[in-house]
Design a protein around this nucleic acid. Structure first.
Lengths: 239, 239, 239, 239
DNA sequence: AATGAATGAGTTTTCATTCAT
DNA sequence: TATGAATGAAAACTCATTCAT
């Protein structure tokens, strides 16, 4: 009656293969986390089912409570891991070793590609925003990761100005938000965009084009000398 | 035992004032829709409670079913109305009557301001994307509204090229997506952005600055002649 | 498929007959309360099962939440009703119309008989004491009822002294506690008493005898002139 | 990976200090029993948590099963120990060495003081009565202890009659129940009494007064010659 | 003797929805 | 058109207990 090879396994579909390891707490924890990531990104916090996560992870439902206390804490850990993942990815990118515009382009492409490869990420962040970020607000690690990102982008911008390949100095956070906007949005809103424009806006070709377009928009902006107020810039008129 | 004078009214806070009108179908319907919009935008489809909507609208829960059949249909109506609202707002804007760059700036500002005044909008669309847009997908009205938008933007772009104030021809939908990205994202993700950067990214000053920054980025891009592939543009290198 | 005569009814034993009344909120509420009283007194708050209460009352489990919000609130209402019942019973007793010692005897017997007829009462109070009375602590009605009881006993004691049938003036609350001790204990602890003395201490004969014994003890005490400290009373010696 | 020095110890408050002893069966057993006594007396059998007991005892939950088989057996052992404790205390009291009324007073005070010092006792017995004493019913030791108590009280009563300091012969068990009632009740029901009378009935002063009051009531009764039925005793009238 | 991991059955509670009036 | 009462299915979470080491 012993079960040394076959996975303990739930009944239904979508289960993460268990590799027949019994009593491997770390692996069990990781499997739960993985399943939770999938479930939460597909259904959101409210729509996700603890039961579904347990089945997907191939573990007893109660184990989830044993390891994570409750659904919200599990959700919080999934979110933290997601941010850790994207920043870690950015960390492998040594911006300081590239020319400023190559660094910028690489940064944009890296962010874009991360979203391509981690489709769950956008959905998770989306959902967390519905909850007014109350879960990651408690994290201390996440802000630290992004403070580093800010410094890194700042150095690249400084170098760009010094080397005269950039014509304006932006606040790194603001720049990041612009980049993130242009990349993130086409992922996060691809479904509604496709629906309202009655076309598939996230086809591979369109996404590939979009990736380079973001590079273009950002670099174009960085390279262009800001116009003086008296200049031709379109100032808002009183209505 | 009949109650002809007293307002129906719920007990708790946040209720939409009922003005003691009983038997006013249109008003009742509108009140429910309004309450639903608030609830859905704050909690999402999964997190919203029919009970909460009824209380907020000051009506009996069953009335919701009477008017809207079920929760999902109500959600769909709320979404459709939201899209109708934003496009209606865009409709008051006669792009053809303005110079191309003024038209573009006005379009951007109009979109931005709509989000400022309709904070619920972003949250609704966000949530609908979690559901892969399955609710508005069924709508026939929404795509029609956006086809018109596309044509309108197209004409502006054409005029811009003809009048040589724009230096490149973009696909209107693609342009719209860029604009929407830059505006929408800072609303939709303001909570997580504020959390990860440990600052309030949606302070009035920051939002005002962002609004003009979007105008700058888009106009800068439209006005700049695209570089030839052999040119200085940063092409991706094999990794 | 309509069901006009037969009770809705649960499946199992112990159900309170529903008298086939449909849509009678007050009756439904009362049935739930009754069933809850039985369940709580037999199992205590922690051991009671909402499911069991629903079945016993012959109603849908959710109705319990509809009427009483949650298990603890239901428990609180049951307790309040229990105290109301015992005091109401006492209320029918006009102590002022009897001679002091007859009044006292009648009061004791009335309390005793209430416990005989309301076996659930003792168990409920017992259980509430395990919870440090946190449920009835919130009640405002219960203390009011007992303030009246205190006054009533006080008047009887005063009359007793005036008419010289009592030889000492006790604090009414203290007297009540003594009476309650002597009556309540043989009910509340009858099971452990029977076990440790290996006999049935709550046989009808023993209970009848006990009832009169309590009258004897209390009246004997009230009628006896207190001894002076220097007198023969057994004063504690230093150990 | 072995952990030979560090104490096992739980994380949270209220833990019984472990003195870093591992592998000390007797001590471990005792610690569990102690923790269980606390938990059961505070929450009752149903409300007590095996987990909480383990934490409080600073041991692994499974050890509880190792030593006591299951929760109910543990509960039974706690109860048996409680009765053993109170009778042991009574055993140190040599009633035969005192004058009858001094013996009686000493017995009452001893019982009262035991409850003062062993606040858990009353709660345990209370809870066991909710369970109709089904746990101690199985004990053989407990009735034996109380048979001895009965004989001891009987001898004191006999001596009292012989020496003419008592005026009536009571059944020792009945006397014991009266004494226990008067002492036990103010402990067992102190919470509800305090709530219904909106005062703290278990303040040290009140308890001290109560202790002597019980002595008074019992001795007064024992010393008073019973009235003949035809005498002035208040006989119940038909209602 | 002692531990951490894992389980299954059950418990309260929630919630969209329907019934009866 | 409007309401309060009632329902069933499922949700999160709890808990005593057992397994494997």
């Amino acid at each position: 009656m012993t079960n040394t090879v076959a996975p303990v396994s739930g009944e239904s579909s979508g289960e993460i293969p268990s590799e027949a390891v019994q009593r491997n707490p770390e692996r069990t924890r990781a499997r739960i986390l993985m399943a939770a990531r999938t479930e939460f990104s597909q259904k959101g916090l409210g729509g996700a089912r603890v039961n579904a996560i347990a089945k997907m992870a191939g573990v007893n439902k109660q184990l989830i409570y044993y390891y994570f206390e409750d659904k919200e804490k599990l959700y919080t850990e999934v979110l933290e891991q997601a941010y850790r993942d994207i920043r870690e990815r950015g960390g492998t990118l040594n911006l300081d070793a590239l020319s400023p515009d190559e660094a910028m382009a690489a940064f944009i492409r890296s962010n874009f590609d991360f979203l391509v490869e981690n489709r769950h990420f956008v959905a998770l962040i989306n959902d967390e925003n519905i909850h007014k970020a109350r879960h990651i607000k408690t994290s201390e690690e996440i802000p630290a990761l992004h403070a580093e990102l800010r410094r890194s982008l700042g150095r690249t911008l400084d170098r760009g100005l010094a080397e005269e390949c950039f014509a304006r100095r932006l606040d790194p956070m603001e720049l990041y938000i612009s980049i993130a906007s242009l990349t993130y949005f086409s992922f996060s809103n691809s479904f509604t965009l496709s629906a309202i424009f009655a076309t598939d806006v996230s086809s591979p070709e369109r996404m590939a084009a979009r990736r380079e377009r973001v590079v273009d928009i950002i670099l174009c902006f960085l390279r262009t000398r800001p116009e003086t107020p008296e200049g031709s810039i379109v100032t808002e008129r009183a209505i």
